[in-house]
């Protein structure tokens, strides 16, 4: 079964749009089947249990027990490869 990823930022508008776009391309290239949903941090506080992985550009409260990967390096390009590796590892686990 394909895993479910939430791509989030503070508003669910700006940076999550960029990350969503990049992540979709990455998953296609790697032929990883996963379902991605764009959301914001307030919504995820109540729905995190629906997801296997959260990819976020903002701080996520500790009450969220789903694995969170910080995606800010994808925005700056500095350390982006490490983030992609971590996402891939998490999806293959």
């Amino acid at each position: 079964m394909s895993k479910k990823i939430a791509v989030i930022c503070g508003t669910g508008a700006a940076t999550s749009t960029i990350i969503m776009n990049k992540l979709t391309k990455f998953l296609e290239e790697k032929q990883i089947k996963a379902r991605t949903t764009q959301s914001n941090v307030n919504a995820i506080a109540n729905s995190y249990e629906d997801y296997d992985l959260i990819v976020s550009t903002t701080h996520v409260p500790n009450s969220v027990t789903t694995k969170v990967i910080n995606a800010v390096p994808i925005l700056t390009g500095i350390g982006a490869d490490k983030v992609y590796d971590e996402i891939e590892k998490e999806l293959n686990s």
């Binding site: 508008a13 700006a14 940076t15 749009t17 960029i18 550009t57 903002t58 701080h59 910080n70």
Partner: peptide, 27 residues
Amino acid sequence: QVMGNPEENVEVKIVFLLAMKEPQAQL
């Protein structure tokens, strides 16, 4: 403060104030 890591600061030289209406349209 740094995005995703609010305990850290970054000295900012350029500010891009973004007014987004429809994010997909402004991708």
